[in-house]
Design a binder for these strands. Sequence first.
DNA 1: CTTGCCCGTGAATCCCGGTTCACATCCTAG
DNA 2: CTAGGATGTGAACCGGGATTCACGGGCAAG
Lengths: 210, 210
Amino acid sequence: MVGTVATTRERLLRAARELVEEGGYGAASVAAIAGRAGVASGTLYRHWPSKSELFVELFRSVCDREVAALVAVGRDLRGRSGVERIEAQLALFAERALRNPRLAWALIAEPVDPLVDAERLAYRKAYAQGLEDALRDAVAAGEVPAQDVELTAATLVGGVGEALVGPVSPLGAAGRDAAAVVAALRVFARRAVGAAPTGEVPTGEVHPAG
Amino acid sequence: MVGTVATTRERLLRAARELVEEGGYGAASVAAIAGRAGVASGTLYRHWPSKSELFVELFRSVCDREVAALVAVGRDLRGRSGVERIEAQLALFAERALRNPRLAWALIAEPVDPLVDAERLAYRKAYAQGLEDALRDAVAAGEVPAQDVELTAATLVGGVGEALVGPVSPLGAAGRDAAAVVAALRVFARRAVGAAPTGEVPTGEVHPAG
DNA sequence: CTTGCCCGTGAATCCCGGTTCACATCCTAG
DNA sequence: CTAGGATGTGAACCGGGATTCACGGGCAAG
């Protein structure tokens, strides 16, 4: 079974994902999903007990990919400073979101139904957790001042998400350069956690890492 | 019209607001609104052409109050520094949101329908704009480094909103002290815009209390 | 008085989208 | 070849919620 034609199940999943990417959950009705997959509505129920469960599976698979990427970054930068890891994680987050804003919005915020919302929560927590860990290290290492790491992490995740896909996003308006936005967000993040400006060491002395 | 008994129209608006405060838009069906207002469903259509339009009016009135409060703060602090104004605005935002999280969530994020969503956008823009203005002043005055003010403002609005009412919010979990959260957010905001730590001059280093 | 308008009623209606199910079709095991 | 399971079909069904409308009652103006 190498490079086979996609099974119906896969086609349904793909159709659902595409629809969500294009128009959010609202655009992904059973009829639309089945239609795009080239099958009848009833077919969907041969593979999932309900539409919600299809969404859960879809959501989970997409999130797993995202989180995996995040974890990979964390591993690659194991030796680096906490601040560097935070920056890298947020930059990755931003880049991926910018590449597919609709999907990002669906993953980050759009409410669907309780089942999917629970998944989303887990996803977000994973994200915030990654930041939190790096931030704690940074605090311990004296790279940044002591702070409410939980709140900082949550605010960063929310803020960056918002800035990227939210309704006030400056991106929506003019077509900005994605790379520039990512760069600006890195700077923002550095400041927000209390790190010294890029490349500099905080006025010479830092507290010994303990 | 001195302290008269509420008109049916007013009772409907109030009922709708209460329902949204308690359970979000989902809980505010026509039947529920009419029921709480003590009238029949059909009555609603004597006053608005559709449910959406009622929501638009409701949304607008609530937002106007919020924005008015914001503007008032801006005016009161006219003499103060840009950073102080930013802090004050965010703190106000946070306090109000914490006082009524459900409503805040509805105003900040919960999708309803295109008509209302357009209103939300205006509201958010007003908010971000207030921050942006203050931030620009701060940059001009040299209180904070040059930066992408638009992006900083958007990220702050989103981040604070998220931290307060979002699903990853640390508030949801343990019952935190609202005042403490507001204080932490002020600190976060100062850092995020690049201001010196409270009351200190940029030259001194900060030490974790420990 | 009576005409007409505003306001209120609530059951009927409409709409939309998820879900079901009786009926093929295909494929594999026996 | 045939039975039976898996898969696919799509029209019909259903529930929930917005919207309509034929039917009063009050009330001010003519």
